[in-house]
Write a protein that binds this DNA or RNA. Structure first.
Lengths: 342, 342
DNA sequence: GATAGTTGCTTAATCGTTTAAATCAAGTGT
DNA sequence: ACACTTGATTTAAACGATTAAGCAACTATC
């Protein structure tokens, strides 16, 4: 049959109570004063019968599932799948498994996923929250389940989070373009109220301003997540055709960059001579573009490890103050941004 | 507090037994002859108290966790993360959640992951098995838990699986290179006994033979998964330097192709004029290589959906015959393979 | 040789559900 | 008036573990 051997089976096999078996298995022989002889007998029987504890029963009893719920926009996006990999490894080291879900930047899916995870009694959530889910996160937080936000954040919600300083990252990237002689700098972002993207926009504008460049509305293009291909195509064309209206481009995410690059590539516009480029995040594609892309690199390792660390800490002590862990970003400069070689 | 409302709380609130609440919640009012009035009262109370069923308790009772364990080599590899995304969506449609783990092509990690998943009482496994895990899969299969293999397979193990016809896919890809005038065709594969890679090698050799080309041992290079960067570098150099010894390259996976392309790119070798290329799988990087790569495309959607379908079917009926679902592959031709334009 | 303490084990309640069986009041038929 | 349905609800066991409390049987103490 199903071959499931329970503690009862082990106990029956030896003619003892399940309590004894439980004590031995959990190494509580000392406290429970189990005799050496019995302990050995039990240990042998456990091996012989191939007993494997039922985590579900343990969870029900303990109230802890040793499971972390991971929700991101899309697990197939390399940015998130790389983080997922780190989180998986770190979590398992601590005895947790990870269940995951993709919410597609959709608040309704987000809500339903949170419900599913809650029913599954996850011990904690690691979430890259979608737009308009601030209240969901707050409610979750207030319900007492540990929550750690990654990549994104809501300044007004008291909650642990791990992310970079998006304003400064964007500021420095754009400043770099300016220092290298670009004056007409466009930005492609998502059309979202999510603070991390907003901050990137602010950093972009601030850099322009600091260097005496007047921001033009038509430089800032926004694509919706749901219609990314179409939107990027439309918006890019406005700046590329019939004539190139800018001399540099700053992309708010790798997905936006990859989509845009396809068009830029086709258009025959020369990178970096006619158009300098810096993007956020990484992508294999950036390396193989004929003019390898410069980018703002976020350490996914730091982010994933940080998230798990915060989760574990909060599981230990839910009264401690909230931590906003700020990961250092790194501006990786390559050919696409037209580095000035003085 | 934790705010967890149990069925008992609902029952107590109304002064009734938990049985009644359970019947109503599970829509068994008819069979259990619950009065309309009571049903309504209970439903209202459920909403009012925000009762959420505890899946863990349900699982313990029912013996089903409604969880699928997904094990792949590395969830951060786009090939697997894309499949994971499909599986996640399909599984949730059927009321299942997915827990995942990466085994890094390592049999020991694989064993430990399977144990973790088994302890979690997953209802079924979807696995891209690593080398030397044939016995693990067989044992799992024999223990009665539904298992579906994806991407890889073990011909001698009776188990459901979803994959392409690797022999033919490789054969056709290599044949295409030959038809377009290449005669000295190298292949970069993994150094593994995994049948899917073996089949790709066989297809490669068979295509050469069928077209009267004598296979040379030094054309077939193998890299170990653990040392991929170093191995690829060493092996590629043998064929690229000091002089280019082949006129075409066939890559057994996208990872191998991406690693190799970095070297080829640096070397200045002209693609496709000096060297034609076809790879397995896809990658954003392929699109942005100056000479976009031709590749053997596997429908990850078909694979993921197929895997979930087989899992669900087997969960319904564990006596049915095993299915090997063969996904159709597609040879996508672009610039890198030097298409003959007669 | 009564008292207390130690050793080694069992009992039984509990976690939150499900569900077969039991209960019980009211109605129906003869 | 009697047994029988029917309807509406409760009881209690079960899933597989954990663990406080209980209980013999010894050992030590004075």
């Amino acid at each position: 049959m199903n071959g499931k051997v329970s503690m009862k089976d082990v106990a029956k096999y030896l003619g003892v109570s399940t309590a004894l078996v439980s004590y031995v298995i959990n190494n509580k022989e000392k406290e429970a004063r189990v005799s050496e002889k019995m302990a050995k007998k039990i240990r042998d029987a456990v091996v012989k019968l191939k007993y494997q504890p039922n985590q579900i029963a343990k969870s029900l009893k303990s109230g802890r599932s040793n499971t972390i719920g991971l929700m991101v926009a899309d697990i197939s996006n390399p940015f998130f799948s790389n983080i997922a990999r780190i989180i998986e490894d770190e979590a398992r080291k601590k005895g947790y498994v990870v269940i995951f879900g993709s919410c597609d930047e959709n608040a309704e899916k987000s809500r339903s996923l949170i419900d599913v995870f809650k029913n599954r009694q996850v011990d904690a959530f690691i979430i890259a929250p979608a737009e308009n889910t601030e209240n969901q996160i707050r409610a979750l937080q207030e319900s007492g389940v540990p929550v750690v936000l990654i990549d994104r954040y809501f300044p007004k919600v008291q909650v642990d989070s791990v992310h970079i300083d998006n304003f400064h990252a964007a500021y420095h990237a754009v400043e770099h373009l300016i220092i290298n002689g670009r004056r007409k700098i466009a930005m492609m972002a998502y059309d979202t109220s999510l603070p991390h993207i907003q901050e990137r926009e602010k950093g972009y504008k601030a850099a322009l301003k600091a260097h005496g460049i007047r921001f033009k509305k038509e430089w800032l293009k926004k694509a919706s997540y749901q219609n990314i291909k179409k939107d990027v195509a439309t918006k890019m064309k406005e700046l590329l055709f019939p004539d190139l209206k800018v001399d540099a481009f700053f992309f708010a995410t790798n997905t936006l960059a990859v989509e845009s690059l396809k068009l830029i590539h086709k258009s025959g516009i020369k990178i970096p001579d006619e158009l300098a480029i810096i993007s956020f995040d990484e992508s294999d594609a950036f390396d193989f573009f004929y003019s390898p892309l410069s980018y703002v690199s976020q350490s996914l390792e730091d982010m994933g490890k940080g998230a798990v660390r915060l989760v574990i800490e909060r599981l230990k002590d839910n009264t401690k103050a909230y931590t906003n862990l700020i990961i250092k970003e790194k501006l990786v400069l390559r050919k696409s941004c037209g580095i000035k070689t003085k």
